[in-house]
Design a protein around this nucleic acid. Structure first.
Lengths: 139, 139
DNA sequence: GTATAATATATGTGAAAATCAGATAACAGA
DNA sequence: TCTGTTATCTGATTTTCACATATATTATAC
């Protein structure tokens, strides 16, 4: 069972990126998971949601993303009618998709560096000046 | 001189998040910069773009974001007509804005953990299986 | 003096990305 | 037969962002 549309327990109070998801991050995950082994959408959804990697991906976005990848030649698909349950569309990554994934990782590393730079700057300010005593008039 | 609209030399080939910017990341930066000291939009733009923190922020987005912050009570502004050049709207962060920033940082730390998890998974796969020899038929 | 560059703020628009909500269908077991 | 699980997909709306452009003021270069 893959409980999407579940309630978000850590509502983050009211702040920041909606739902606590990392934005624009489903795409590289999908390519990586498919690089590991071919899979169908539903399985990808479960693998994405497990381990707290991403909090319950939206199926609509996931399936649309896979179709889009196929249009772009990053993955290719075939129907699997064997086994119980409804037919499933099994995706596998292409050579082009692998290239794309590798290029993406370069970007993600750069992104992490920027995150670190932000957090350093934040800590430098709020830890050196204990509590940040720059005068903020609460008036 | 603050050369926005500059050409992006590292075009990342054709891949990934548009323009190489980190998505949804201007907002916490603005709050942090304003926590350090009050400033007007143009100055914030320069501080954002320097040090490669963010590659040349879009002024449109920046000014809109500041106005939105003001609506939400995260910052407050006043006009500064002193000194040369056109009048500038000087923003300072509010107590609520500081709270918001701190909450945001919690999220950003979580985001970084997720990035790391992704990169670990990627490296685990592509470094153990040298070159990832999972059979990808190039056909 | 006037044209140009730099400073500074702002809006209008459109594409892409993401959310929310539901429709559809096959099969399994009670 | 009715419900639950597996599985895929679409439609509507909202949000986000990038790009282009408009505007005004002052400084300086010619």
């Amino acid at each position: 069972m893959c409980n999407h549309h579940q309630e978000i327990e850590e509502s983050t109070d009211r702040c920041c990126p909606r739902g606590g998801r990392v934005r624009g991050f489903m795409q590289p995950w999908l390519l990586l998971l498919l690089a590991q082994r071919p899979a169908h959408g539903y399985e990808l959804m479960e693998r994405l949601s497990q381990g707290e990697a991403t909090p319950a991906a939206d199926p609509g976005l996931l399936y649309r993303t896979l179709r889009q990848f196929e249009e772009e030649g990053l993955v290719r698909s075939s129907w699997d009618t064997e086994g119980g349950g409804p037919a499933r569309r099994v995706y596998e990554i292409t050579a082009e998709g692998l290239d794309y994934l590798h290029a993406w990782v370069v970007n993600i590393r750069r992104t992490r560096e920027r995150l670190d730079r932000f957090l350093s700057e934040y800590e430098a300010y709020f830890h050196s000046k204990k509590g940040g005593e720059q005068d903020v008039r609460t008036r």
